[in-house]
């Protein structure tokens, strides 16, 4: 009966695990869901040049995850009805985007020039999209404006922004937000130059954390004390019997042996030797060299 129940629990566990794995694999295949289109240049007159020295349109992708994401296997397209238009080859280390980093693809319609050169350009593009490795799941898309100025990029003003605007400065392969920023610490100290605010907030949080533990353990302690008292409350007739038994069963020698064992265990005797070698002289009144019995085999009896 117990075995059956255990098997049932085990099967439930497996089923839940499979559901979780299935759910996450759809949602987070390759972690490509963390990729974002970040900046796009449609008309490149005198902006960045590609590895062939050509001024061509480009698309920048940002890895918003805090781990490396491999773009290999994903798709880039300028046509939502054809999501698998450009397949990014797999197995190439160059397609891995480090955490919070960027990758630029050249939209020059010259795919023979390398894996970062797409098989479409942006002259008539209305939309740019990234699709997951399954070719169906849309990862990110952006609708391009109808008009573009030469060398002016269209992108997110900051990495986290959902809004797209024409950017004053093009930053292929770099953060679009190039303004100087204060660190979290600097911002904090601006409002709290003497640390009083930090002390108040932090001490409140530390107290709150430990006070919650206190409340829980105060009540849990009461519960366990009550439960222990109920469980240990013997029936009147059993009191005498158990007292008699314990007196009989636990002799002084047993107690002494337990105490000694505990003492030895706690003081961990023999775990650390003093590493002093002593040579005890063995006194012999004879020498094997002078005794024939050490050189002769014993005669069989």
């Amino acid at each position: 009966m117990i075995m059956r129940r255990e098997i049932k629990h085990f099967l439930y566990g497996i089923a839940v695990l499979l559901l979780i794995v299935a759910g996450t694999s759809v949602a987070k295949a390759q972690n490509a869901s963390d990729l974002k289109l970040n900046e796009i240049l449609v008309l490149n007159d005198s902006n960045s040049v590609d590895d062939f020295g050509m001024h061509t349109a480009w698309i920048e992708i940002f890895n918003s995850a805090y781990n490396t994401v491999d773009m290999g296997g994903c798709y880039l397209t300028d046509d939502l009805s054809n999501p698998t238009k450009y397949w990014i080859p797999t197995g190439d280390p160059a397609t891995k985007i480090p955490s919070r980093n960027y990758m630029v693809f050249w939209a020059d319609n010259h795919p023979t020039r390398g894996i970062f050169h797409l098989n479409f350009d942006l002259k008539n593009a209305k939309t740019i999209a990234i699709f997951n490795a399954d070719g169906k799941t849309l990862v990110d898309k952006v609708d391009l404006p109808s008009e573009h100025k030469p060398d002016i990029t269209y992108g997110r003003p900051t990495n986290e922004s959902t809004e797209w605007v024409h950017l004053e400065k093009s930053t292929p392969g770099a953060n679009n937000d190039y303004t100087k920023k204060k660190s979290a610490g600097e911002s904090f100290v601006e409002f709290d130059p003497y640390g009083i605010g930090m002390t108040m907030i932090a001490m409140f949080v530390v107290f709150m954390s430990l006070a919650i533990l206190f409340v829980i353990y105060k009540n849990m302690g009461r519960f366990f004390i009550r439960r222990g008292a109920a469980a240990n409350k013997p029936v009147q007739s059993e009191v005498k019997v158990s007292a008699k038994h314990s007196a009989e069963e636990m002799s002084g020698e047993v107690n002494a042996a337990i105490a000694m064992a505990l003492y030895l265990y706690q003081s961990e005797l023999h775990d650390e030797e003093n590493t002093v070698l002593t040579i005890q002289k063995v006194s012999r009144n004879y020498s094997p060299w002078s005794s024939k019995i050490y050189t002769l085999r014993k005669s069989p009896r």
Binding site: V206, F207, L210, A211, F214, Y217, K218
Partner: peptide, 8 residues
């Protein structure tokens, strides 16, 4: 458990 608060 009230000793926890001293740690805070």
């Amino acid at each position: 458990p009230k000793l926890i608060l001293i740690g805070a």
